[in-house]
Design a protein around this nucleic acid. Structure first.
Lengths: 227, 227
DNA sequence: CGGGGGCTTGAGGCCACTCAACGATAGTGG
DNA sequence: CCACTATCGTTGAGTGGCCTCAAGCCCCCG
């Protein structure tokens, strides 16, 4: 049986409470909500990192650009995810809303103050950074050594795991976003998905191509070579 | 002028003292030395992470394997570097000595105990994890979007920065190691280096091809596209 | 209905990979 | 000291996987 050992999650803080604090008992913590329209920037690379974000609904992409426009998306952030947490004072990615997205805001400064005295909060900050690190480590293997089909299969399995909405998987991101996440072109991604469709591994729902149902996770997992 | 902003280091713990503790004042901390022969394994992926290592002399590669043998090196560890620090209980890479390597050992458990009560130690643990994360983030951009020449140029600049021994850069790792770090084949790495040699950007010292002198860092930097 | 964005598909090209040969070096043992 | 071997690096020739360029379809939305 297939076991995805290296992505087994650590105990994962997935709400503000998991920082070890309650908003009502910590008036220092500023907890506002904000909504970003599709395509708008949440923050830019090298901007001061004053806030940490948790997605209430929607989806966000974090990316770096080369000077000639080549883009590498480092991560997608979905409902429940916390992002924008930096240790330095600046953001190291640009973050954009993929669709209309509502987030909760936490002032970074107040988080750091609490972490100073509360070991549990400090441990959770470390734990979240570690989760990001693990994801980046696995993604390096994908980008450096996997074929286009293996990358797309890995992507679909990752999204299947994280978008546990229902039977069908409603991808918020475009083929271009997927391509820039996987280090491919959008055409190559499209061809790989078509190929998987022909193999009977997945099917489409409706007349948009972003609603995907995985028909054979076993087969998909065998296409994404593991370590 | 060229500024490599995204790799500007955070305040970097580069000795055991930087954990915020002194070995003499903390008898809990076990501080042994050990030497690994060239090519031997320091630890394997998924082994329990009981120790943290600091390199006294030598060099180490950390890598993941796919089941068919494809290898992705995630990082090289050089003299002074600390590696093997995990948040979970298991190592996520295999670590091997590239050359004969002497390390200092720190018991992980004692580190965690101290971090529990000492906020400064905790902060330094987080800071080290963040440095690893930043490196992985930059490396994703390289693996996903850079050409072979850009990758090799970036690699030489990184090593130039970290192997500040002298005028000449004595690479401890083989072309195959470099290739597996950059997501290329060893032939492509060799061709890129030969090309840079022909351009007059670098020269060889002696009759081994691992002693390299960078003749034109400016030119090299312009070949490695920035963001 | 017209326009635009997103997706697919085809044709051709190119960059990196594969396969192979060769030279140089270091280590080994006679 | 000299074979002998294994390892490492370079270089060439040819292949192939992914990219580039292009056309066309579908759907959404004004």
């Amino acid at each position: 049986m297939f076991v995805r050992t290296n992505t087994d999650p650590l105990p994962r803080p997935n709400s503000l409470h998991d920082f070890g604090m309650r908003s009502d008992s910590n008036p220092i913590i500023c907890l506002n909500e904000f909504t970003y329209k599709k395509g708008t920037e949440v923050y830019g690379e090298k901007e001061p990192a004053d806030y940490v974000y948790q997605i209430k609904s929607g989806a966000v992409r974090s990316y770096k650009l080369l000077s000639d426009g080549r883009r590498q998306i480092g991560a997608f952030h979905l409902a429940g995810d916390i992002f924008g947490l930096e240790n330095g004072s600046e953001h190291r990615f640009t973050a954009e809303a993929i669709v209309d997205t509502t987030v909760r805001l936490i002032k970074r400064q107040s988080l750091e103050l609490v972490a100073e005295s509360d070991a549990m909060v400090a441990r959770n900050l470390l734990s979240m950074t570690t989760i990001n690190l693990q994801h980046a480590e696995d993604h390096m293997l994908l980008l450096g050594r996997k074929t286009s089909l293996e990358r797309v299969a890995a992507f679909l399995l990752e999204m299947d795991k994280r978008l546990t909405a229902s039977e069908v998987m409603a991808l918020p991101m475009s083929r271009r976003d997927i391509a820039d996440y996987l280090g491919l072109t959008l055409e190559t991604v499209s061809r790989a998905i078509s190929h998987l469709h022909d193999l009977g591994v997945l099917g489409f729902i409706g007349n948009t191509q972003r609603q995907i149902v995985l028909l054979d996770r076993q087969e998909l997992a065998s296409l994404d070579l593991q370590h």
